[in-house]
Nucleic acid binder design. Structure first.
Lengths: 142, 142
DNA sequence: GAAAAAATTAACGTTAACGTCAAGGTTAAT
DNA sequence: ATTAACCTTGACGTTAACGTTAATTTTTTC
């Protein structure tokens, strides 16, 4: 497998090196491994995940704490599928699933609300742009 | 006309009193007027505008600086319509209109990009929610 | 008109998310 | 085996957007 050092990861993700190290510092994202000398090494999958985190932050405006929760959801569900489906205490499983469901539901509500509002802003801006363009055309036809 | 004091404005907009005063402090938003004794008085229109600013911040993640620019756009266009349509130097008018057009175009691009990404996240979450619900149903049918 | 309730300014505090050195260790290229 | 280029870990600095507290004024209510 191929490994990348932090500078290339920064270029490929659009994050700064400092940000990537910071995410590790607060326990948000660990590199695939380190070299003998302690240099951070990342895989392509790592890069995809960092990109995803960056997009979530940019688009949804999540804090890093919220992103952590968001990323955990996928993981938790994966765990449910594989691991302790048969093993663990059933009650605890249901509780966990319900909590996931509630979190996801809240996030979906928020996304729907924002998309609705965004559509409004978009329309307003499109009308505004239209008026501006008409004003410009009028001035150039003279 | 009816006037409201800051406490009521805060309740009606969802902003805190501190935030409202801060917006004034940085020159982002001025109340309609003050009382003799210096107490801030707001109109219904003020409240609508504050609500709008709050939504822009929440949904688009704009900084207060960006919100200022955003609010100025509408105003500038208003000015163009009424005031110096005939009076001012035509060259300057065209420059201003072009700048507005460019700003709005950039904002629209950004909104379209975000809505696209949001739609993706929404789909992912809906699928995830689906799987969670199926998991829960399976557990309750036993 | 006195007391309570709410408003004002001023000023310092807080938090997240990095930016920016500095001092030193690792790796790659000659 | 040197450099040069890149990496590491501290550790302190910065910025936006308020929160909080305190000391005074204004307004409202009884």
């Amino acid at each position: 497998m191929e490994y990348y050092k932090i500078d290339e990861v920064a270029r490929k993700t659009g994050l700064t090196k400092r940000a990537i190290r910071y995410y590790e510092e607060i326990g948000l994202f660990q590199p695939a491994k380190r070299s003998e000398g302690g240099i951070r090494l990342y895989t392509d999958e790592d890069i995809q995940q960092l990109k995803r985190m960056s997009e979530i932050r940019e688009v949804l405006g999540f804090s890093l704490q919220e992103i952590r929760r968001f990323m955990e959801l996928t993981e938790e569900l994966e765990a449910h599928r594989r691991g302790y489906r048969q093993s663990d205490v059933p009650e605890k499983q249901v509780e966990e699933l319900k909590e996931i469901r509630d979190t996801v539901t809240r996030q979906l509500d928020m996304i729907r609300y924002r998309m609705k509002k965004m559509t409004q802003f978009k329309q307003e801006l499109e009308e505004l742009l239209d008026r501006v363009n008409k004003g410009l055309a009028r001035r150039e036809n003279q």
